[in-house]
Computed example of a mutant assay.
Amino acid sequence: MVAITATLIFVLDQVTKYWVVHGLGLDAKGVIEVWPPFLEFRMAWNYGINFGLFSGQADLTRWVLIAVALGIVLFVLVWLRRDPPGRPGLLAAGVLIGGALGNVVDRLVYGAVADFLNMSCCGINNPYAFNVADIAIFAGAAGLVLFPGTPASGKRKKRA
């Protein structure tokens, strides 16, 4: 279940990035209004983490962030093996892993993460962009917090 979910999220992330950035030419246009002011595609190459934090020393940061993302994926996989959650937790883990791997591929291919979704509302102009992988990482992490594994006492017999 984790592998299938991760694969679906990864493919959705990569297909949407390719379609918007290359198919619609967002890399050349910069901005495409989809449903102003609520949704627009705004090209942003993210060399750091959320909101461009830690984007200095681009090449070093790139490899550190790849290592961190792969480390998180490995941590989640080990955690799942040691304390398997129920179905919602497994789905959340797959969503997080698929998103993390989607951003890793961007860093390997482009040297940065391709962010393109921008949402604003109610007179507030949001300057930040994100992508499907970012949504998946956030949703997957929230799901793992909300649907953790069962308590250890419920799985194992207590020793006398």
Rank of each mutant, 00 (worst) to 15 (best):
P148H: 14
L65T: 13
V64A: 10
I32K: 12
F130D: 07
F147H: 14
V95R: 15
R159V: 00
L65N: 09
Y110H: 14
A93C: 02
R62A: 08
W35L: 15
M43V: 11
A141S: 08
Y110V: 00
L144A: 04
V21Y: 10
A141H: 02
N126A: 02
V78T: 02
A141L: 08
L74N: 01
F10T: 05
N46W: 00
Y47N: 14
L101A: 01
G30I: 13
G23H: 04
S55R: 13
E40N: 14
P85Y: 02
L80E: 12
F10G: 11
A114T: 05
E40K: 14
P85C: 10
V34W: 09
A141M: 04
Y128R: 07
P148L: 01
V104L: 04
L80N: 13
Q14L: 07
G149M: 05
N103I: 12
H22N: 13
A100F: 07
L39E: 00
Q14V: 01
A93P: 08
V20W: 08
I9D: 06
S55V: 08
F54Q: 05
A69D: 12
A139I: 12
N46I: 10
V104N: 03
K29C: 13
W79M: 13
A28K: 14
F116S: 10
G25P: 10
F38M: 04
W63P: 09
G86C: 11
G23F: 05
L70G: 14
G98H: 00
A69V: 01
V104T: 08
V76K: 02
V68G: 04
P37I: 05
M119C: 07
L24R: 00
W35H: 06
L101H: 00
Y110R: 12
S55W: 13
S153D: 13
K155M: 15
F130C: 09
L77S: 05
L117K: 02
W45R: 15
D13F: 07
Y128N: 11
V2R: 02
L96G: 05
L77G: 03
L144H: 12
M119E: 02
G71Q: 05
P127N: 09
A114L: 05
G154L: 06
G149Q: 03
P84M: 04
L65M: 13
G123T: 07
G71S: 05
F138G: 06
L144M: 15
G30Y: 12
L96K: 01
F130R: 00
L101T: 03
I135C: 11
D27V: 13
G111F: 06
E33I: 03
P88D: 07
N103F: 05
A44M: 14
R159W: 00
A139L: 15
Y18S: 11
T5Y: 05
V64G: 07
W19D: 05
F54L: 11
A133D: 13
T61C: 01
E33N: 13
V34Y: 08
G123A: 08
F51H: 15
W45A: 04
V15Y: 04
R107F: 15
A112N: 09
A133E: 05
I49N: 14
A3V: 14
K17I: 01
F130K: 00
V2G: 01
Y128K: 07
A6L: 04
D83C: 09
M43P: 03
W79I: 12
